[in-house]
Every structure is written in C-alpha cells, then in structure tokens.
Design a protein around this nucleic acid. Structure first.
Lengths: 231, 231
DNA sequence: CCAAAAGTGTTCAGCTTACACCCATGA
DNA sequence: TCATGGGTGTAAGCTGAACACTTTTGG
C-alpha cells in the first residue's frame, strides 16, 4: 500500500486552536475575549480561535491566531491540552487545542484588532463563553498559577522594567491572595534573578519605587544548576 | 448557510490518541510499549495508539485504545497534551493526543493482548520509539511526578492493599531518589489517608510488613476542606 | 504639613532532615 | 542463631509567617 494511503479508512476531523489570553493592567488579572460576529453562537463571547491549516504545526496555528487578534508575535504561549467532546461545537465535530498566552496589555493596547470586538474581562467577572471555553479558562488559570510558582513567567505580564509593588500586585491577582510586602520582597529578592535599576517609577506614588529588571541569564544559571525556585 | 456546512472550507485532519502506560512491579517504574506489526515504522517500538472515531470523545478513544491492549477499563487515565508537528508521522499528517495511564501490572498481566507484542521497559531503559513518542514519555513522567506530589495517584500503581515499604519503593522509583524510611512513614501516615490493616504481607520478609489500604473517603474530606497534601 | 505609598528586621512556630538501634521470623 | 527486612523517636536547622514603624515627596 502507498504510504500516503495507510490511514485512508480512518475518519478525519476539524482541528482548531483556542487561545486563553491573559493580561495584567497593574491591578487585576484580565482575560481577552472576542464577541463572535460569525456563526455558530454569533453575538456571544468567546475565546479567540481558528482552524488548523494543512501545513502548520499546532503551535504555529496558535501563534497565528494570537497574532490575528493582537498583532503581536513572540509572546509567552503554552499549550494546555486538547478538548474533544463529540458535541462541544454545535456546528460540527471539532477537536480543539487550548493554548494560553501572557501579554502585557499596556504594550499592545493599540495593536488589538478592532475587527473582533475584543474586550478585557477581569478574572472572576468573565461572562459565559461559548462551547467549553469557560472550562478552558479555569484550567488555564490553574496552569498559570502553577507555572508562576516554579518558573518566572509572571514577568511576561509586566513591562520590561517594573517595581516590586507592581510585581507583588501581579502575584496577588494571580493567586487571589494578599502577601506581606516584607516577606514578598525578601523571597523574591533572595532568588537573585532581579536586577535593581537606579531609576524610580513615580507615577503611582510621591516617593517613587525603584525599577527592577528580570535577569534571564541569572535565572538560566540557576536552572542549569538544578535549582527550582518556588514563590 | 446550513449549520453543518459552516466549516466546510477548512481542512480536516487525522486525529489519534497515544497512551503512555506506566506500571510498577515492586521494584521499578515501567513503561508498556508495543512492537509495531504494521506500517509505518513496522518492527519498531512504539506507544499504543489508535485513531479517533467519528462518534467518540477523545477520552473515550483513549480508554478504548488502552482496553484493546490491556483488556482493562477503569484505570487512572489523564490527558497530557496534543502533539501536532506537521511531519511527526511520515505516513500522513496526524494530530495526536497523548494520555498517560497508571496500572498495576500484577493485576492485569494475563490480560495484556499478545496480539501487539507488548513489553514492559524500565524507565531509563526505554528504547528509541517511533515519531515523537519518547518526547511524550518524558513529559508524562514529569506529569506523573507532579501528580504524585499533590494527589494520591501513586496508589493506582499498587494493589488494593500494600505495605509501606512497597509504597516507599514506588515513590523512590517515580522520583529516582531514596528516602529515609522513618521520615517517609511519618509523612505519609500523618496525612491520615491510609488505613492500617491487621494483616501482614510476608512474601518479601520473614517478619512481614503490615498491609495498608488507601481511604478515599478520608482523602476526599481533606480535599473538600481545601487541604492539598505534599509528599 | 500631611497623606500616600515605599521601604526595612526580627521573632516564633512548624516543618524538614539527619540519624541508630531493636524486633520478628524463617531457614 | 543469624541474616533479612520491618519498625520506631529525637534533636538541630531551616523556612515561612506574623508583625510596626520610618522615609520620601507632591500637593
């Protein structure tokens, strides 16, 4: 048998990717949703998604979908898992691969395509979404929490330079807790992966807070030596 | 447009499931592989897999594939993630959803279908597998380690009744470490989810070791009260 | 000068880790 | 009786959590 015909008796399926896009505005963790202007479920809130093409990997498809909405490449993007209930999409059988992305909304706010009627929702105030998208969001949040505990992905949600109070608010909104600022600073600085700058950010206070930068090289060193950090 | 025709301009893909089947023989953590008796890559070692049917969910497909090989239902099975590089399968574009399963090989050793030339490999001695299957196994092992740290899934790899030395060996083989037995017993018993039986297992020692049973109700109570345990 | 946010150390409790000897029994 | 694996307690160090006051400066 021709190699290309080996599987021809098996069914084929539509495959899509759906993106859970997280952002942080300095106060709350946010989710970017779109208002569907196309059937099925037209007019309802939804995650941004798209169908998998013939010649792109699923990761490439996720990046493409993300770029169609936000105009940006090179963001943190990680696959969650596949969703494949038979009737999850009323229009047809579709296997969807959920990805979650972390972006800094401030940096890209003008890039988000108006074509999709996108809107940021505070986590906890996310509306009912189509299909199984709410389930995906819940799972993505738990994954984000876990990632933030063992890897420095939180920084993806902040600008290049950030203050410790900003970082603390980010962690507090991700984990829906409050932390003692002395303990938080002690812990985060003890990791030795932040570089203190000589500059202060003075927009949110009169005194001003020192800016820091995440030092990827120091983090990579730690990882090479097998040290996993916890926050 | 007819709802069933909404997606007709999008490509469709073969979708498969692949199962990483872990077992524990009392000494080592094992992986169940099959020798492919069919193309492509005939004769090579592979994970057990199968194509997704028209009217089954991906979870159902994974259970079906697992049952075809092992003859068993109702085992621990969890999805890892999807794999979708364009050329991961030389025969055709196939999107695969990887699942990992935990079984107690002793209980099912006669049920494993001889049709697939299956063999248990000790982790660390797994041969080169077809496609991206080695990558899936690595990922599954890391997921298993994480699961075992926060949920009592290790018990899935043991018989209903087990001794503490057996349990310790299991954890040691999963995490490739050794533990101090006093500390291990203290920690595991302090969780309060094990029921000590009056019976001893005397096959591996003259003195005999007490048998224990995992008490799911106690564990569920803990979970309800929001206590996540760590081992 | 005062309101508002940034920055700073110490103490205590609980947990983790290290560590050594006796017990029961089949051969 | 002895070899083999099962079972037990304690002390030290470390980590995480609780806690209050001073500093800076724009308005």
């Amino acid at each position: 048998m021709e190699i290309s015909n080996l599987y021809k008796h098996h069914p084929r399926h539509y495959v899509s990717v759906d993106c859970i896009i997280f952002g942080f505005n300095g106060e709350d963790l946010k989710l970017l949703c779109i208002k569907r202007s196309f059937p099925p479920e037209m007019g309802k809130w939804s995650l941004m998604g798209g169908f998998l093409g013939e010649n792109e990997s699923i990761d490439e498809a996720a990046y493409r979908v993300l770029e169609e909405l936000t105009g940006i490449k090179h963001v943190f993007l990680e696959q969650l898992q596949g969703y494949g209930s038979v009737n999850r999409d009323p229009a047809a059988r579709v296997i969807s691969l959920a990805y979650y992305a972390l972006i800094n909304p401030g940096e890209y706010k003008d890039a988000i395509s108006p074509h999709f009627s996108a809107k940021w929702f505070t986590l906890g105030q996310v509306p009912e979404l189509v299909f199984d998208h709410n389930e995906m969001v819940d799972k993505a949040l738990r994954r984000l929490q876990r990632r933030c505990k063992t890897q420095p992905v939180g920084f993806e949600l902040l600008a290049d330079r950030f203050t410790l109070p900003q970082l603390q608010k980010l962690y507090e909104s991700i984990f829906r807790m409050t932390y003692d600022k002395r303990n938080f600073r002690k812990k985060i600085l003890s990791l030795g992966i932040l570089q203190k700058l000589d500059e202060k950010e003075k927009e949110t206070s009169k005194k001003g807070a020192y800016l820091y930068r995440f030092e990827k090289t120091k983090y990579d060193d730690l990882m090479k030596r097998g040290i996993h950090f916890e926050i």
